[in-house]
Design a protein around this nucleic acid. Sequence first.
DNA 1: GTCTATACAACGATAGAC
DNA 2: GTCTATCGTTGTATAGAC
Lengths: 242, 242
Amino acid sequence: MPSSINYREFKLQIDALRLEICREIYRRNLDRIQVKKEDVAVARLTAIFNRTLEISNQVGFQAMSVRDLSERTNISMGALYAYIESKDKLLEMVLCMGRLAAARVMAMAPLELPDARSQLRWLLRAHLYLTEAMQPWFYFSYMETKYFDRDARERAIEGELASERYFSDCLSRGMAEAIFRPSDPAFTAALIKPMLQDWYLKPWKYRRRQIDVEDYAEKLIEFVETAVLLQPAIEAKQVSPP
Amino acid sequence: MPSSINYREFKLQIDALRLEICREIYRRNLDRIQVKKEDVAVARLTAIFNRTLEISNQVGFQAMSVRDLSERTNISMGALYAYIESKDKLLEMVLCMGRLAAARVMAMAPLELPDARSQLRWLLRAHLYLTEAMQPWFYFSYMETKYFDRDARERAIEGELASERYFSDCLSRGMAEAIFRPSDPAFTAALIKPMLQDWYLKPWKYRRRQIDVEDYAEKLIEFVETAVLLQPAIEAKQVSPP
DNA sequence: GTCTATACAACGATAGAC
DNA sequence: GTCTATCGTTGTATAGAC
């Protein structure tokens, strides 16, 4: 992935990735899934995952009955259980799908960025674009974490902390390069995280205000850089009133 | 409330407020509550509300069975229903409690603060202290909003937007006073909000790092002021490595 | 591989004794 | 004002016909 990213291109890569990942999940769970025709199974599994996120993000995973899921996917109760074994295992597979996607995207990072500032920009953009492309999954994961079993909950928390570490490392680097203001990098990273999460947690707010991912990315970068750079950009753009 | 606030004092005021508010909720719902001895009823209602938040924040409001609540409050199913009429009405009362508290606290704001900078500081502190003192309610309200009925959901969203308006107005004021950097005040306010919310949404993270409300308030104020002030404080404190 | 029909547990809520 | 016992409903999951 080039260091300057454009959402449209990014989205194409993600969409390709997703098909691949659903196929991988099917293969990983061959013992639990009764349906043996791979193409049939992968297609229906994908639909099942998407509907699960859809319904859960409206009424919650607990409140989503398997009957609901059966109706919305047009798969009968009996057939559905040939794919998912149980509601708990369904959750497990859905979570696995997002984790795989996130890992693959981070692996797309350019190995060396010239300085901490461009690295910070890349991190912010990549985070926003990924969570935009897979908004339902990230929203789901955030809102349902507390209902997960211990193992899944710990993985989710580890994910949160790991992504903070990317930022905290980048901030340390910028301080070492003497282009970032001295501060507590772990804490600053902890402040940046919720601003990134707001994008996928309250999509209604930004849709209403007609702000898209790229607008959000640009403005967030401006805000964070002003707080973090030793010499923030002088170009103080005058904003016209609404 | 003085313009410089201390959490300990703030907490005392909130605790007094809460008893008052539970009594008011009892009186508002006299027709629905079968128990007529006010002191008995208010005491038990308070316990019911607290346990409801406790259980819901672990397993979710939907998954909390009234039986669970009955066991944890040591009130039998029959008796419980003499207080709450239905699970839905219980939710309504719990939400009402928090809304009343938030409104009363905002009414505590000092009428005139000398400049936008001290107003911004007051707003940040008041928000953090209130949500710390009533963390279970704010966590609950955030996580359960999407399950509310239309009316309650709209109220919750209105609350979010209203609190953003406080910040956006303050930012506009600061720009007019020529002490804040020119920028889009609504968007900056939208970025500040999730940093405030992180405090009550991920208490585990800050407990783990031994950061209390006052630490958080101070550091957040520093971060926001650096991003927002035209001439940020020069005192770039060197942070000793951990 | 998919369907309909059904088993069994847990839910919100209420009746009636005390 | 509080309890125990019970109602009808809805949930997850499965059996067996096709």
